[in-house]
């Protein structure tokens, strides 16, 4: 992330934009040195679990253990509690639980847990659309650009843009989110998709939104695309935006 920001600092032509990127880099350094959150929005905890099919979990509920981890992490780590118990009555749960947990059953005897807290500002600017297959790759590109333009300053640019294409309605959204787990700017292994990522990044950065939306050439640091087979009648596209406060951690047990 820091190296992506450093490169962005070199490339930004707006002086205000440059100064903002510098503040973001300084902020990350302060946060690391003083062990404080880089952003006060320490997010909704999203957890991706890859469970080896030979693993047997004993001694209680696995999901409860994850929630307990979140509870302790957010309380003992002085992180902000940003979760409400019900979307309509909006009473804070007080300990940032529950988490959003996804499970994948994989071969082997290992347990991999990836934690990716997600800020509200960038999540709110994400979008999904069921395109017509005839709209093709041009339709996909247009939807990505429209979404980033509509998001403007709200997700705290420079951003990372996760794009999920194909599958079903919810699968596309999940693909977009999973793409954000990749190291920033690491291209998709498929050469065609890597080309699409590069092309989208160039088009996004031509929009002029710039750091914090105040004008400039660095709106996104990277675009990550993931695809999945889809129905003959469908072309779902999801765009999940992540901010520069992209925080990930993984552990393998």
């Amino acid at each position: 992330m820091i190296s992506a920001l450093q490169k962005a600092y070199e490339e930004e032509i707006s002086l205000t934009g440059k100064e903002i990127i510098k503040q973001i880099i300084d902020n990350a350094n302060i946060a690391e040195k003083e062990e404080v959150p880089m952003c006060q929005d320490t997010g909704f905890t999203v957890v991706f679990v890859e469970l080896g099919q030979d693993v047997h979990i004993e001694g209680g509920s696995f999901e409860d253990a994850i929630y307990e981890g979140v509870r302790r992490g957010y309380t003992e780590g002085y992180l902000r509690k940003s979760i409400v118990r019900h979307p309509l009555d909006r009473v804070n749960t007080g300990d940032n639980t529950p988490a959003v947990v996804y499970y994948k059953l994989v071969p082997g005897d290992k347990l991999k847990i990836m934690v990716a807290p997600k800020g509200g500002g960038s999540e709110n600017m994400s979008a999904i659309k069921m395109l017509k297959p005839a709209e093709g790759v041009e339709g996909v590109k247009q939807f990505v650009l429209d979404t980033v333009l509509a998001a403007g300053p709200n997700p705290c640019p420079p951003i990372i843009v996760g794009v999920g294409i194909g599958g079903t309605f919810e699968k596309a959204a999940l693909l977009a989110k999973e793409s954000l787990l990749r190291a920033v700017g690491k291209p998709n292994p498929s050469p065609e998709l890597a080309d699409l990522e590069r092309e989208l990044l160039i088009s996004i950065n031509k929009l002029g939104i710039g750091p914090q939306g105040l004008g400039g050439r660095i709106t996104a640091l990277a675009v990550h695309v993931e695809v999945f087979p889809t129905h003959i009648a469908s072309l779902p596209v999801a765009v999940n935006i992540n901010c520069h406060a992209s925080r990930h951690k993984e552990i393998i047990l």
Partner: peptide, 13 residues
């Protein structure tokens, strides 16, 4: 005014 979103540690100083 805009403050830099996400620069929360720096701002807190």
């Amino acid at each position: 005014f805009a403050a830099v979103g996400g620069a929360a540690a720096l701002i807190s100083k």
